[in-house]
Nucleic acid binder design. Structure first.
Length: 368
DNA sequence: AACTGTCGCAACCGCAGCCCG
DNA sequence: CCGGGCTGCGGTTGCGACAGT
């Protein structure tokens, strides 16, 4: 059954709106509100179809429209929501006060999408684009230098790459890599942004925490793996606490400015579980607690200071997102089900703390 | 200065879902 | 239940602005 067009094509104007037309629409809606878009243009004295009027009003003339460049926080929200919702622009826009679905869609297509593509990330799946990865070089062990025993023992790329049906690289890992890379570059360019500033001003990793971090892959090696990330650095989540205190000196000095900050609360000697306790997470509060359960009942807790932007208070985190449900158990992410049971999400795949995109995301563009 | 290519954004198009008679 | 009307949504297009040659 064919649908009649929303407006009679004859005699109705199309194309850009003139200021006079805008004023007529504003005046009419100001007086009468917008009820029936089909009859509105006739009543308002406009030679437009109702659809055109509705679009003009909702996307441009509405008084609560926020114009101008998207902030980083908005951009971050768009990326996060898009990874969950896909191209549900209206749903995404609903989380961004003053922004329209059309504006979000345009911004995605003209800025974010291109940026992700540049970075080798598929903007649809938010996973790495496999066509850009040199798989053979990733899997070839000789690509690593032998001067670090940690590389052979801990840089287990098969785990990094995930198992058969998993995406090749944890998207969170890529986000982190992006974060680390851009932060690193920003610091290079701005000597004022030294470690001390980060720790003091951004509640970032304390020196104590840095001393208990697992080793990093050397930047040049990571470049080999993911050329599009430049000299980004990569961390691997430890399988056990014995790995944890080893070689993490570089982390805090280069990789701060996350939106999720992990602050040491209490330090223990060993652990076999990393718990992001769902019960302790409350979107209305600012912090959730992650706990390393040690073998000797001493807990090593890290407090995640969740930015409001990452989890807008008006909208709780999605139930299955990594915000609140992950337990890392001996290198595997465990999902806390609602019934209290846990389920292994990412079998034998290197997992890591939840990090967010840094506030300096924009800088990524300059260095790719 | 003129031409060409690229980018960004407003607006359009067509489909789908909801509502109502 | 069915069909028509209305609205909302996502994809696409057109065009002006701008940059590069």
């Amino acid at each position: 059954m064919g649908r009649t067009p929303c407006c009679d094509k004859n005699g109705l104007k199309k194309g850009p709106w003139t200021p006079e037309e805008d004023q007529k629409l504003i005046d009419y809606i100001g007086k009468h509100g917008y009820g029936n878009w089909r009859t509105l243009p006739k009543n308002a004295g406009l030679q437009r179809c109702g659809k055109s009027c509705r679009l003009r009003w909702t996307n441009y003339l509405r008084p609560d429209i926020k114009r101008g460049r998207f902030s980083f926080e908005e951009e971050e929200t768009i990326i996060q929501l898009h990874s969950i919702l896909g191209n549900k622009w209206s749903a995404i826009a609903a989380r961004l006060p003053g922004r329209t679905d059309n504006e979000v869609k345009n911004y995605w297509n003209t800025h974010i999408r291109k940026r992700l593509l540049k970075m080798g990330i598929d903007p649809i799946t938010h996973n790495p684009r496999l066509d850009l990865l040199d798989i053979s070089s990733i899997l070839h062990p000789s690509m690593f230098q032998n001067n670090s025993p940690l590389l052979s023992s801990q840089m287990n790329l098969s785990r990094l790459l995930g198992m058969q049906q998993q995406s090749l690289i944890n998207p969170e890992l890529l986000k982190l890599a992006t974060s680390l890379f851009s932060t690193n570059q920003l610091q290079k360019n701005n000597p004022c942004l030294n470690q001390q500033n980060y720790v003091q001003e951004n509640q970032c990793f304390s020196n104590q925490f840095q001393d208990h971090m697992p080793p990093l892959v050397q930047s040049s090696q990571f470049q080999d793996i993911l050329p599009f990330y430049g000299d980004a650095q990569l961390m691997q989540f430890p399988n056990n606490v014995e790995d944890f205190p080893a070689n993490y000196a570089n982390f805090g000095s280069q990789n701060c400015q996350m939106n999720d900050y992990y602050v040491p609360v209490q330090q223990g000697s060993s652990c076999d579980q990393f718990i992001m306790d769902d019960n302790k997470y409350n979107p209305s509060e600012e912090a959730t607690t992650a706990t390393f359960q040690s073998n000797n009942s001493t807990n090593l807790s890290y407090q995640s200071v969740l930015s409001n932007l990452s989890t807008p208070s008006s909208s709780p985190a999605p139930p299955n997102s990594t915000y609140n449900n992950n337990v890392v158990n001996s290198g595997s992410i465990m999902n806390n089900n609602e019934d209290g049971s846990t389920e292994k999400m990412n079998n034998n795949c290197s997992s890591m703390l939840k990090f967010e995109i840094p506030d300096i995301w924009d800088n990524v563009d300059e260095f790719i």
